[in-house]
Design a protein around this nucleic acid. Structure first.
Lengths: 320, 320
DNA sequence: AGTACTAATGTAAGCACTTACGTAAATTAT
DNA sequence: ATAATTTACGTAAGTGCTTACATTAGTACT
């Protein structure tokens, strides 16, 4: 208890498990109280079999929200205790249709009575509390189905990282970082080509002087991402040399760089932003898509071997 | 979901389990998101080891509210992943003192950051709901620790049965029931003796005519319990021939009979109610105790072999 | 009718814990 | 000091589900 208070709601999963264990074991005591040879986990299956005859395993599983495997196992137990029996389906021989045995049918009224008692006890119990557990569970299930815990945490992390990421203009001292980040991923997936080295070794000459831009992402005092805009013609700019260090991937840094690059392209008066990539780089393609880029049908020839896809983002519709 | 609504809160245990599974598996996704090679279930142990150095297995278990076995297993896993190391205790060689390895220490800051994110996400999640799950769990744990589900259910059942049990005065047609109920338990534990048969076969002659009473309990149209009051002398009445059919035991019927008998004894003007029993019959002794009977030190000699304990209940203090 | 796919089920193994049990070290009683 | 008890721990097996896999029956398509 102590510990959970300290840890806070991050331990929600464990805490739920612990409570479910307490409730389950106390439920088992209830069956003892009624001296009924019956295990709590049988109940959902038995209930469906008793109230809705003619159902088969998969059917029951769907009804009670468990897997067919769980139902199959419970049925096996129930058969062993002679409470239900299994028949092959008439129309469909694959089905296991479950029905009560005489012994099972004899047990049912007592079980119903007991369930009514348990329900009443639980309802009194819930009424004792200020925060209704039953309703809280329902709301939580709904909230989690709308958005998973993972994506909620991701949103929080992205917000935190976002405010700690600084997008910077190129300065000469960043040339080694710019080169390192790009060489890293090119070597990982492809091989470094001649045009790469030119641009990475002499960015001022090959990128900035022709009217392009270089952007860098700084996170926790380190340069962890980079990208470049290359001037193609009056209306078109190419987005290239996009790189994020592996350690900083998944933090939304690529997206921040992309946004900044698009803003820059607009500022340069470009009407169309264009890029080349490779379908092997699925996360990158996904990122570009998220930024608004769409695949172009027929494109210019590329100077790079590794490119097999071209994408573009229209910044300003050309009036036709 | 459907099913639980229909079944009502009787399925609280299963439902908690299901939710805890969802939360736990979503928590695992979070670790993937941070690409940290870490399993959620390690967290509590790792947390204690990181924040409170020098602790040993049992110590950690107590801290996080799990068993030492669970901690021992997690530690084994953590050692395999080189995140912690184990040393024998210095003063006590039985202890396994756990500490972080370098790798573990390196992981800790990232994990702390992640935990903070998870906590924030969970808190936002909880804030979205009208019924706060976290507080509801706390309240439920408290309510269940005060009174278990079993005893709550029992109280409800006793109330239900109580109103369905009718305590009746003896009538000649009940003689077979009176005999059957008593023979049943006597034969089960002891053997039927001569005075038993006299009283059971001819209750009017041996019990009623000397000024005694016979009470019967009717439940669902059947006689399921009986007891008799035997007049001893002007001040003393003996409670005897108390019997409840096995199928109806545990329903509080004995208690109802006892209460009625005590009321009758008072009505007869008796100052002292006395009984003989056997310590082998633990539930019976417990019942008598609950009714207010206390063991007497030295008693009268008994006509029955099977009696090895005498108890009495003072109805009206004899002024000394 | 033969083939590929899909559906229904049973079985095995896994998960994150528990309880049960056995062993060795420490403590207490004699 | 020896014996009896308690404590600390690790291992095995159980719990109530799940996922993964294998088998067999039914369906759709040629």
């Amino acid at each position: 208890m102590d510990f959970f208070d300290e840890l806070g709601s991050a331990g929600l999963g464990s805490r739920l498990r612990r409570l479910s264990e307490v409730v389950t074991s106390q439920a088992a005591e209830v069956y003892e109280l009624y001296h009924v040879a019956f295990e709590p986990r049988w109940f959902p299956v038995f209930y469906v079999v008793a109230t809705e005859p003619g159902r088969h395993v998969g059917d029951i599983a769907e009804r009670i929200g468990q897997t067919h495997a769980a139902v199959s196992q419970v049925v096996k137990d129930l058969v062993k205790h002679e409470l239900v029996q299994v028949q092959r389906g008439e129309t469909d021989q694959r089905r296991s249709v479950i029905s009560l045995t005489e012994k099972g049918a004899a047990l049912w009224p007592a079980l119903q009575q007991q369930t009514a008692d348990v329900r009443q006890a639980t309802e009194t119990l819930l009424a004792e509390t200020r925060h209704n557990l039953w309703l809280a569970i329902g709301e939580m299930e709904y909230a989690l189905s709308r958005q998973s815990l993972g994506s909620r945490v991701k949103a929080i992390r992205d917000a935190r990282v976002g405010s700690a990421v600084r997008i910077r203009e190129y300065e000469p001292q960043f040339q080694p970082d710019f080169k390192r980040l790009n060489i890293e991923w090119i070597e990982r997936y492809f091989r470094v080509e001649e045009p790469d080295l030119k641009a990475l070794d002499h960015p001022e000459e090959y990128i900035l002087q022709p009217g392009g831009r270089i952007l860098l992402a700084e996170y926790q005092g380190q340069i962890v991402g980079a990208c470049a805009l290359l001037r193609m013609d009056a209306d078109t700019v190419e987005l290239a040399k996009m790189a994020v260090s592996p350690a900083a991937q998944g933090l939304g840094i690529g997206f921040r760089l992309g946004e900044a690059a698009i803003a820059q392209a607009r500022a340069l008066g470009s009407k169309r932003l264009y890029l080349e990539s490779n379908t092997k780089l699925a996360p990158a393609i996904q990122l570009y898509h998220k930024l608004g880029f769409r695949k172009t049908v027929a494109g210019q020839p590329s100077p790079y071997e590794r490119c097999n896809i071209q994408m573009e983002l229209v910044l300003q519709e050309v009036k036709g």
